[in-house]
Design a protein around this nucleic acid. Structure first.
Ligand code: ZN
Ligand code: ZN
Ligand code: ZN
Ligand code: ZN
Lengths: 125, 125
DNA sequence: CCCCTTTTTGACAATCATTTTCATTTTCTC
DNA sequence: GAGAAAATGAAAATGATTGTCAAAAAGGGG
């Protein structure tokens, strides 16, 4: 399909951490692309709708995206300084979330889990 | 201290679910208060800074607050429809988060965990 | 290729939660 | 009560995100 969406996907795939729409737009423009900000937003929307990229919110509410290796359900360990992320899994957490939801009579239970810290790299400086 | 902050704290304490600053402002005005929106924001900021209220982000990035019973570290099971929340604990999750952070060389590890679903009440309608 | 329909794009304006400003009011201290 | 310090709120500013709409690109017969 759209060549622009592909451009955005690739820009994101080249990143190890989470990036905002504004970040990606700046990167792409700096790289010579004539892409528009609106298009970056639309591409990220489409990519996250289709589950190709993960999205989370920073403390100040900004949406940040990441093209993860795994398509399967997983969580992230994110560096507070450089935003580098590691994909992590926690079967125990999955079970706990489902169980606690059921125990309180909730249905259609989902969860969000993110772990933050300072990565070894950033800890040096 | 501030009388206004106390007003906001009480308004929030009367709620079972998470409310946004705009929600609380509307509630208070509807109740006859002459409080300003800025003050509601400032009160919520102060209350969350001091750990008296919990804050989380909705899917669209809006900050919502809750005056929980427990001052201790805990998480929430939140209804997707009415936003009613139940305070939950998960020792296994606490350990898992700390362990996975350490295993990858991260320091100062924290985490965010929220469980969502439809409460029994809302499931009926 | 050419014409026409459909989709994509991007500049610009519009939203909307949140933050800043700043002058006024209230509270505190002496 | 007088003056300094903190709190308040109306209005303007900010900044990410979304909506609008006309121009540009892509597709598909003929
Ligand atoms: Zn780092
Ligand atoms: Zn999970
Ligand atoms: Zn409910
Ligand atoms: Zn926890």
């Amino acid at each position: 399909m759209s060549t622009r969406r592909e451009t955005v996907r690739q820009a994101l795939t080249g990143c190890t951490g989470f990036r905002s729409a504004q970040d990606l737009y700046a990167d792409l423009r700096a790289g010579g692309s004539k892409i528009g900000l609106t298009t970056v937003y639309r591409a990220l929307q489409a990519l996250s709708d289709s589950g190709e990229v993960d999205v989370l919110r920073t403390d100040d509410g900004e949406a940040v995206y990441r093209a993860c290796d795994s398509e399967a359900h997983h969580h992230h360990l994110v560096c507070r300084k450089c935003s580098t992320a590691v994909e992590i899994e926690g079967p125990a957490v999955e079970e706990w979330a489902a169980e606690v939801g059921a125990r309180h009579g909730f249905t259609g239970v989902t969860h969000t889990v993110e772990v933050f810290g300072t990565c070894a790299e950033c800890a040096r400086s």
